[in-house]
Nucleic acid binder design. Structure first.
Length: 156
DNA sequence: CGAATTTGACCTGCGC
DNA sequence: GCGCAGGTCAAATTCG
């Protein structure tokens, strides 16, 4: 880890009394940022920015019983859970990847002075979720985390 | 009018 | 057992 932008070892503005061991504030464990030269699949529009792609493999508490609702759709893909995190340098967090996203809920993370936005695919049959968050160190960078795989073409 | 968006409240999981 | 963190849904409102 040499040129990893996301890395906090001090956190002077906020001291939560964290003992030690600081991989990442959350499950997002970026092994390493891969500089994608050309990605014709994602972020087709305005891809003039350096896009860093990092595959995150998290197999903890996913596709399990959804809380709150005793009865759920139950339509979860036990096989196909894919979590991919993209770090892109952009001003707007609303990157158009060619799909329709419906924003649902906003939360403020403690490790970031910026709120986290949750998006969900509005296309029926496509239960892909997208998490957008700004970098805590470089607000010029946006971290987009995709969850799931699209089951629908880009557009009808 | 319809759909999408917003904010808040609520629930669950884990930690100590 | 309680607290904290994170995540989701619901209702209300607004925009197109």
């Amino acid at each position: 880890m040499s040129h990893s932008g996301s890395n906090f070892s001090g956190t002077p503005d906020s001291d939560y009394g964290e003992p030690t061991n600081f991989e990442l504030s959350e499950f997002l464990k970026f092994d390493e940022w891969i500089e994608e030269d050309d990605q014709p699949s994602l972020l087709s529009a305005s891809t003039q920015n350096p896009v860093y792609r990092a595959h995150v493999i998290g197999d903890s508490g996913l596709a399990t019983s959804t809380h709150g609702g005793p009865s759920i759709e139950g339509r979860e893909q036990k096989e196909g859970k894919e979590r991919v995190a993209f770090k892109t340098k952009t001003e707007v967090e609303i990157l158009d990847d060619g799909f329709k996203w419906r924003k649902y809920g906003k939360k403020m993370v403690k490790n970031s002075p910026n709120p986290r936005n949750y998006y969900r695919c509005s296309v029926e049959g496509c239960h892909v979720k997208k998490r957008i968050e700004r970098d805590r160190e470089d607000q010029s960078y946006v971290i987009t985390t995709y969850e799931g795989v699209h089951n629908h073409p880009s557009s009808s």
